[in-house]
Design a protein around this nucleic acid. Sequence first.
DNA 1: CCAATTATGAGCGTGAGG
DNA 2: CCTCACGCTCATAATTGG
Length: 480
Amino acid sequence: MVDLLANRKREQTARGTNRLVSELFDDRRGGSQLKDPTSMAIQLYDQPGFVPLKGPDSSLAELTDFICAAQMARADDAHLGELPHEDESGPSHVHGDPPKDKKRKFFEDERWERKKHRAYEKKHMDDDETIRLPNPMIGFGIPDEPWHMSHRTLPEPAIGPPYFYYENVALAPKGVWNTISRFLYDIEPEFVDSKYFCAAARKRGYVHNLPIHNRFPLMPLPPSTINESLPLTRKWWPSWDPRTQLNCLQTCIASAKLTERIRKALEDWDDEPPLHVQKYVLDECRKWNLVWVGRNKVAPLEPDEIEMLLGFPKNHTRGGGISRTDRYKALGNSFQVDTVAYHLSVLKDIFPGGINLLSLFSGIGGAEVALHRLGIPMKNVVSIEISETSRNIVRSWWEQTNQKGNLIDFTDVQQVNGDRLEQLINSFGGFDLVIGGSPCNNLAGSNRVSRDGLEGKHSALFYDYFRILDLVKCIMGKNQ
DNA sequence: CCAATTATGAGCGTGAGG
DNA sequence: CCTCACGCTCATAATTGG
C-alpha cells in the first residue's frame, strides 16, 4: 500500500511543476526504484498512441508524461485508499434508530463513508491555498470598467512562445483550479463571467500567458440584456419577472411538458398571478433559462438564439447533418466568443501577419471564430476535435468565410504525440497560440452522477492539454 | 413491416458562494 | 437560508432506413 499521507504531503509541499519535475528527476538519476504510484502511472499511461519524444531531448517530454501519470495515480490512490480510522462517532450514532433493513443500512453507510471522506479531505487540505473566485467575476478587467489590471508578472517557465490559453468551468470542485494552475506553470487563473460581455452568464476560468494591457472588445458590442438581445420577448415579459440576463447556457433544455405546465399554472389569472405561482414560474424560468414568447407562454431558447448569445454567426451549427439535440450540446459546451476574443485581442498587434494556431478540443470553433472576428489572420490551424459533426461545422465555416490559411484536423488529443507535433512545427515554423478548453462534464455542478473532478473519465483530458502544450514548448525551445 | 437509431421527459444531489 | 451549475441515465416514444 502506498503511503497516502506522504504522497499528499508531497503534493501539498510541491510548489509548481518545476518542483515536481526536479523531484521526479532526482529520483530517476539516483537510480532509486520507481515507487508504486509511478509504476501504476506508467501502466495507466501506457496507451496506444502515446509515443515519447526520441533523441537526446527526450527527457523533458518523458518527464511531462511521467508527472501527469504520477499525478493521476496519486489521485487514484486518494480515491481507493483506505481512510484513517476515526474512533468517535459512527453511522449508528448519527442515525439513532437501528437500521430498518439491509438496503437502507447499506445506503446510509455509503453516505457516511462519503461524508467522512470529504471531512478528511477538508481537514487535510491547505485551506489558505485554495483558489477563491473573485466577486465581481471580472478577471483582470473587462471593457468599459475603470478598474483594470494592466500588468502582471508571470512565472519564468510560463512565458512563451507559444502563447497559450486554457479554459474550463469556474465552479469546479475545490482544489481543481489549484491543480490546473500548478500544471500550467503556476499562472493565476483569470475568472470571468460572460454576463459582462453578453446577455447570458457563463462563469469560466482562463489560464493563459497573454499580455493583459491594451485589450479591446469585439465590435459591435453585443446587447447586454435579454430585452435587447431578444426584442420579441419584450412584449410578453411580465412585470413580475425581474430577470434582465440569462443564466448559464447549458447543454440540456426544458421539456415541452414543463412549458405547458407553466402555461396551465398561469391561465387562471387575468393579470398578476398570486405570489406562490409567480415563485414557481420564476424558479423554473431561472432553472431552465426560459423566455417569454406569448401570453402565459415560456419557451427554451432556440439554437439560433444561443448561437447569437455566444457570439457565433447565425446558422453556424445548423444543417450539415447535425441534429437539434446535438446542436444544443455543441453550443452548450462552447466558448462565449466575445469574452475569449477580448482576451485574445492583444495578439493582433503582436502578429500583424497572422498566427499559426493549435486548437485542442476545438468543438464548434469558438477560438477560430474569435480570432477571425478580431481580424487576426490564421495561417495554419491544427484543430483537434473528437466529434465528427463538430469538425464538419468548423470545416464548413472555414470554407464559407474564405479563409486563406490551411485547416488541418485531427480526431483525438490522446493520439497526438511528439513526432507528429514535431512534423507540424517543422513544416510551418511553430505555433503562436495553443488554445483549448478541456471537457468539463466531471467538474460541472449539473452533473449529479459523475462529478468526479479532474480525474474523471472525461475531464482528465486536461492532462493531455498540458502534455501537448508542454511538448510544443519543448520542441519549439529546442529549435531556437 | 421490423429492426435500429435517435429524440424526449423525468428524475437524479451536492458543493460552493453569497 | 438562498441560488446556481459547458450533465447523466434510463425508460419510452418517435423516426428512420432497409
